[in-house]
Amino acid sequence: MFLLAEATSNAAVINWHTVFFFVVAALSCGFALAMLFSSNIVRMAFFLVISLASASGVIFLTGSHFVGAMQLMIYVGGTVVLLIFGVMLTAQEAFITMKTKAGDWVLALIVGGSLFALLTQAAFSVEAWHSTDYQQDLVKEVEKFNKDVIASMQSDGRAELDVEDRKLTKEERVTLSDLQKRIRHGYPELTGQIGLALVGVRTDQPSVEATGYTGYLLPFEIVSVHLLVVLIGAAYLARAKKRSAE
């Protein structure tokens, strides 16, 4: 994300990536909880929307913009609209709020709570996962690049020129723009790679040549056909039945 590594010049600076992570994560989890404890079905749908949209924010913060936008588009824009449709079609007084027995709540919360404890325990059990050096490494790389440029300027006499005329060489400019891209946009080549992988070419792992490892063409096709089947099936299931007049 563009926020990454901007605020890393010295240690005691607020890390906006972290801040935004906590904001988005709190929104996502909070509205998920709200959804769980709300008994009105339409409000549940609304809370689900916000929770899912914030979850797409979490995905954006991992740097995978394409998946995040896909989440917004399909989950939030498609699936949940469908759900709300369903809610409206079936929303009658009796079904809008359906209460659950207290015993069910207790049981579900105990099981869920222990599952959550277990999963979080597992997530935090690996020391290396607690934090990341990515930003520091990036900063180091930038510093190294700075040093290199200064050194090469001194070595080939550019340092004596006026400040205006100190141009970067082509290689340096490419490195610089690459670094800038990584600082501002995370890793933008990813979208192209996803597209290529879907038509069967893996650009990130050229070494894997064995059949079945080269790309995702077949799954992609299967999913497309599957979607078509679902389209027809859902239309068939939900069609208005003609009640024969008796």
Partner: peptide, 10 residues
Amino acid sequence: LTEPVGLSHF
């Protein structure tokens, strides 16, 4: 707020 978040948080 100053430490970068890691994988565990996600």
